[in-house]
Design a binder for these strands. Structure first.
Lengths: 130, 130
DNA sequence: GATAAGGGTTCCAGCTACTGGAAAGTCAAG
DNA sequence: CTTGACTTTCCAGTAGCTGGAACCCTTATC
């Protein structure tokens, strides 16, 4: 299967698939014309990666997950540990964004937002937290 | 004021302050020995940037905000517009993270997480959404 | 006066995870 | 035989810094 078809099947752009090969995630065979040749297993792994990435796992986490996926003797506890760590990270990010959101919301609410120069948002940024 | 003192006063590392100069955000004077020389206004602007960055504004948004901050004829509506756009972006990111969080949470909950290889998390990643 | 510590300076490379573009090779259809 | 779609490689750029090397400046101490 050519890279274009693998892209179709996995939902990943060809550029990304080549990149994943570069960093050693999915290594396809080569045909006589030097075109990459993707087997069903390759495509399956690409789909796996697409899904894992869409859940926010980093490339290195994906590498570990893929390795566990291919290991018949894996312990589900190892997978779960990675997922739990990732969830904490997500929660941290959400909290960070939520804090920004709350601050900005109250500033925006306090700003009349017309042609006049007086602006509580700029005041806050300038260090005036009255 | 030397860069080290400006760093102390603004809470930004010297490396970051030099970077901000590179991209034209805060341009200090130079002293005879070629050392950067930061005035109170410079430091004030660095603090402004640190605060704006901590609220998640991009560098380009910071540039606009800083420009509006220095413009006595600004309209607060312009500032508000930038903030509102930024809030939407934050909301989008939170929603994205929340969706990941929900999916991962239910997967983690379904995973017994012991030494056995059977794992709902990997099953999901592999495309089995039963 | 020599020297060592603790600033400062420049420049180059690397981080994440791709993405765009150039130049060239390959393949199928008309 | 040419056109167009696809493929290849390689180089560069994105955001926002950060680390490190190699060197200069200032001050204090011996």
């Amino acid at each position: 299967m050519n890279i274009g078809d693998a892209a179709q099947a996995s939902g990943l752009p060809p550029k990304t698939i080549r990149y994943y090969e570069d960093i050693g995630l999915v290594q396809p065979d080569r045909r006589g014309n030097n075109y990459r040749d993707y087997s069903d297993t390759h495509v399956h792994n690409l789909q796996f990666l697409a899904r894992a990435r869409s859940l926010g796992f980093s490339i290195e986490e994906c590498r570990q997950l893929l390795s566990l996926y291919g290991d018949r003797c894996r312990a589900s506890g190892d997978v779960k540990a990675i997922a739990i760590r990732h969830i904490s990270e997500i929660e941290r990010k959400i909290a960070e964004l939520q804090a920004m959101h709350d601050t900005l919301s109250s500033l925006v609410e306090a700003c009349h937002g017309d042609h006049r120069p007086d602006c509580p948002i700029l005041k806050d940024l300038a260090g005036d937290r009255t």
